[in-house]
């Protein structure tokens, strides 16, 4: 039997599951509900200052990247659950998208 390379994706999926369960809910509440309804000051200057702070930047990076690994991992396996037997190309596209989002978030925060 061939060794699976799943441990790599499973590790990232696990980290993503934790971030999505612990951090994402309050972020959705702030950016998606409270700020648009005017309850929270969400001005450019304030958000820019938060993102420029090292800790703030790390929080944003974690909130963008890890849930990508969670969700794309689950959706890839869901294809199989729905009877779609996707090949390695689709697998590469799903995890490639997660990697791309991870790198893009880091790039946007750093440069």
């Amino acid at each position: 039997m061939k060794r699976s390379n799943e441990p790599v994706f499973w590790g990232l999926f696990g980290a993503g599951g934790m971030v999505a369960a612990l951090l994402t809910p309050v972020l959705i509440l702030i950016t998606g509900i409270l700020a648009p309804m005017g309850a929270v000051d969400f001005s450019f200057a304030r958000v820019d200052a938060f993102a420029s702070n090292i800790l703030g930047g790390l929080i944003i990076w974690a909130a963008v990247s890890f849930p990508l690994w969670l969700s794309l991992h689950r959706l890839y396996h869901c294809l199989h659950d729905f009877g779609v037997h996707a090949g390695n190309g689709v697998k590469a596209a799903f995890y490639g998208a997660a990697a791309l989002g991870t790198v893009a978030a880091a790039y946007l925060l750093l440069f």
């Binding site: 060794r3 499973w10 396996h77």
Partner: peptide, 14 residues
Amino acid sequence: MAFLNAHEGAWGCT
């Protein structure tokens, strides 16, 4: 371990 490590082993579980 070979059984556990395989795609058909623990990694086949969702």
